[in-house]
Simulated scan of single mutants.
Amino acid sequence: MRLVAEFEIYCDALPLVEVATTVPEATILLELQFNHGERPLFLVTVTDGSHQPVANALTDAYDVGEWTLIGQAGDTRRYQVIPSLSFEQQLGVHIDDLAGLEALARADAIIERIEVLPDGWRQTGWFATRDAFNEFSAFWQQNADFQLSRLTRDGESEPPGDGLTDQQQEALRTAYELGHFDIPRRASLQEVAAELDISASSVSERLRRAQTRLIEETVATTWPPLPD
């Protein structure tokens, strides 16, 4: 039975948690490139938060060796990060079972999304069997604070909006409650931004991304394909 799981691992020793703690207003997504030896290359996508505070946080982070800004589109930036520590070096003080940590890399699972939080990681993963998921969750329950948010069978649909980030949900809810979507509109983008204490451009991007996600999950799935 194949499973899809969403969960949080609360451990402040995980890579880039220090960066997320320094710039809590930023949303940080991490991809690991395991074909680069014992120190996998990090591909980091950052939305919200301005570049300079993120750049300073990357420079000062103890677990970052080198970093490069690869590209930017609106408020979204992509960085390539070379870690200064291997996973064993970084987590060895906090995790007794390093052999178990290495075994997780060979498990029948794919972690497709890692969001770095100020106190750990939020992840979405696909697991080939219940045993594979149990092995993964048991390891983190023993070595950190593991909290399961959602577990479904492969192929089961997600409730609309499950794919939104917390910041996107907050932006949508605030804009709705202030009357930004009313006709006539009762609150401007600037007023929503002031309520959230972020820039109008950041609010605009969060709302666009959230609305696009909701359309993809609901309306778009009912449309017939476009003619060639």
Rank of each mutant, 00 (worst) to 15 (best):
L164G: 04
D97P: 00
L3F: 07
V4T: 10
P53V: 02
I183T: 12
R122H: 06
E177V: 09
L151D: 03
P118M: 08
P184M: 00
S201Y: 14
V4C: 07
T152K: 15
T59D: 14
A5K: 03
Q168F: 00
E88S: 11
N35F: 11
L214C: 03
E135C: 10
V116A: 01
A187T: 04
F146W: 04
H94R: 10
E195N: 11
T68C: 04
A107S: 14
R209N: 15
T45S: 11
R122M: 00
F87Q: 08
L151N: 04
E102G: 12
W121N: 05
R78L: 13
I215R: 09
A61D: 05
I28G: 03
G49K: 03
I95M: 12
D63E: 06
G92Y: 04
L196P: 06
T47C: 06
E115F: 03
A210N: 00
G92Q: 04
R113V: 05
Y62C: 10
R173K: 11
F133T: 07
Q90A: 08
P118R: 05
L30K: 07
F42I: 02
S201T: 13
R209C: 13
D60M: 09
R113H: 12
S188R: 10
Q89M: 07
L29A: 09
A26R: 02
L207C: 05
R130F: 14
A175W: 01
E156C: 13
V116M: 01
